[in-house]
Design a protein around this nucleic acid. Structure first.
Lengths: 135, 135, 135, 135
DNA sequence: GTGGTCTAGACCACC
DNA sequence: GTGGTCTAGACCACG
């Protein structure tokens, strides 16, 4: 698992961290039961403050995607094979999707192309699948 | 046009304002040529500061979705019928879409359902279409 | 002489008016001695307030490009054939040119292309030349 | 990097600030990767409000010339060596150039001299180049 | 420490 | 009347 973050991005570092983990889970590179690097380890690797890593992990915990233990560190709790979206799937997801899709429409992208674009992006996750390396 | 914003949300007010306008454009509730409320009027209606409305309108101008005019206030500039996405369509759109779609997959939503969900949301915009109230 | 102004532009109307007259003089469509339309006439034609036309004419007068008489209205005072730039040529011209050229360089346009672009634009004025119709 | 602004000019302060940065980038005094002063620092130095500096920086961000970062402040993003003008180079540039060049012609400056003047101004940027002071 | 957001009130430019 | 600019001060988010 290699997590790439952009120190110069305007997206907060902890948010980028969270996003990359979510994408890795979606792509099957991280599976339920896999451990994430320790906060200090990852912070050192990325050259960022470990509090920042902590905050990213905490965001994932709040989403129920990972579980945090003092002993075993951060462990992935859900992946695409864990069954249906579950009751605590972020209720805001549709709202955010709605805004994002609206943006494409408003800028003139035809609905069909928007769907195609989504489908294509989803395919990239399937393609990356099984690049997995359990720690 | 009624724009609803949530004063308690963690999404910045000006951003919510921008999002609501984008959605209204996508839904055909706002068409190219339509006027938006004046900054001070809208600020008063929403109970927020006019600078905040200003910033939201300014974001829309930066996206080329509206045009600001000392005379006629804010006027919608683009809508779904205004042609292709234009060359400077936010390059980050696919990145943001990728992260959002990954989130659905990670929570266990099957890819087909994700596509269906997007399609359904897009339909709501088409359905709302022609609410036809030009100012 | 047809002056086109864009009511929806973010450029002030009086400024557009001034700009169009300057360009018409540069193109030879307006020559020294030619009369500009009366403020009320032009305001009526363009569908704008005559105070706005007045302000545009006044800007041209401040630049010594036109002369204003109560009797004869606005009369063009200078054109490309009126001799050297004259002592009261806007001293700010080079400053504004400097900023505009810097903008092109900063965005990555090669200096040679900038010069070419300027030369090409200047050619368009020569080409339009002699479309003139003295009132 | 010293940025000079004129408190008495009719050009908005934030615009002057933006212009000076653009010129510094064009002259090679600011290169991609260089940091600009923090908003509050610069505001204090110039004796103006930090919101005004903020707005100037924001304009530069909208042009993709700088990147704003909570961590490292404002960082120059593009410079003359960053490649071609990019697809979203201000479309209005030629329009503004046209008006500015027309002004010179109207005042009697011969076309050849106008080109020479532009070339000379462009040279000054090249000459200033390599003043080499990275923060 | 940095930038971001929001509020508040003043004055100006344009029309 | 409209939006634009500038100032001022508060608080928050990020690192």
């Amino acid at each position: 698992m290699i997590l790439l973050i952009d120190l110069d991005s305007d997206v907060p570092l902890y948010q980028q961290l969270r996003d990359r983990v979510v994408e890795a889970i979606a792509a099957g590179q991280l599976r339920a039961g896999d451990s994430l690097p320790s906060t200090r380890q990852l912070a050192s690797d990325l050259g960022i403050n470990f509090h920042t890593v902590n905050k990213g992990y905490d965001a994932l915990r709040a989403e129920r995607l990972v579980r945090l233990n003092r002993k075993s560190g951060a462990v992935v709790q859900r992946d695409p094979t864990s069954g249906p979206p579950s009751e605590d799937f972020p209720e805001s997801w549709e709202d955010r999707a709605r805004t994002l899709l609206a943006e494409a429409l408003a800028h003139g992208m035809p609905p069909d192309e928007v769907v195609d674009s989504c489908r294509r992006i989803l395919t990239t996750f399937r393609a990356e699948n099984r690049g997995g390396e359990s720690p």
